[in-house]
Design a protein around this nucleic acid. Sequence first.
DNA 1: GGCATATAATGTCCTTTGAAATTATTTGAT
DNA 2: ATCAAATAATTTCAAAGGACATTATATGCC
Lengths: 159, 159
Amino acid sequence: MTNTSKDLPLRLSEFAPYQLAVVGNRLSHAIAALYEQKYNIQIPEWRILMTLAEWGQLSAHEVADRTSMDRARVSRAQRRMADLGLISVTIDELDRRKTLLDLTQKGWELVESIVPDAERTGDWLLGVLEQQEREYLNVIMKKLMERAEELRKRGGILE
Amino acid sequence: MTNTSKDLPLRLSEFAPYQLAVVGNRLSHAIAALYEQKYNIQIPEWRILMTLAEWGQLSAHEVADRTSMDRARVSRAQRRMADLGLISVTIDELDRRKTLLDLTQKGWELVESIVPDAERTGDWLLGVLEQQEREYLNVIMKKLMERAEELRKRGGILE
DNA sequence: GGCATATAATGTCCTTTGAAATTATTTGAT
DNA sequence: ATCAAATAATTTCAAAGGACATTATATGCC
């Protein structure tokens, strides 16, 4: 007997890492297009915007931590945002290696206009789910977020 | 009163599209590194491999559909795989626009060695979840997969 | 105080990705 | 039978992302 699909214990479409990668990617692109067209910003900007709105002034390093982006990506987005007048960038005089980011008035105004849109998009997305599924999703994502980070740091489960 | 985080109804870390993007991305990278080191292939190759293993000979177009990749990406991976001798590529004589892909013996051997590894990784990842959460995850992902695709096709929910 | 080490940020380089244009082939309409 | 439109695949091009090197500053040890 030759190889057939019956022998395979793993179907791509059921494989959680695949599902998560595809869903995450599709969402990123769709939402990025929305933000781009309507507000002229990209995903990194969006993340920084929301993070500063939540926490107030932060160093670039702290922003990177809280947005799950690396420092290079934050640095690039930071410049674009400063050019657009959305954030202020100052050197921390207590530790001159650090740069402190904070929203400007214009940044706050963007937050206020973009948040309702983002919420609608999020709600629409989750609209396919039952209430209970939505609650599970949040719990599951928190757990997987850590697990995936661990996987990244360790470079796989094999070592 | 000045703006504070209390006013904000949306926390990035609770925002499902953000969570999904980050988890998906971290997983992709971690797993890509694993496949790369150990088997010398990348994510697109992995997806094609598993798809052909499940379905047998398919056209490049069908592969693209079933792997959630665009045709350019499939086309590139296809060439790499053919160079490695993992797949055979033939022109469909009934419709000469199509190219048909199929696993070679060598491709099947790779499938057999890589699948147990992938399963272990998948199981380890889901190991943080309760049994019931795992079941929910699968259902939720199927629903979100479609929803995200719809979002992509429509270019946002606003139109 | 001076020097090795650690940390913050930015800059450089290379790869991957996705969109759009291009080419080849087929299908359908007249 | 011919031509326009549709479909499959590839190529081209520009942007984004991430790894690594570099620079600036701070910390801790001797």
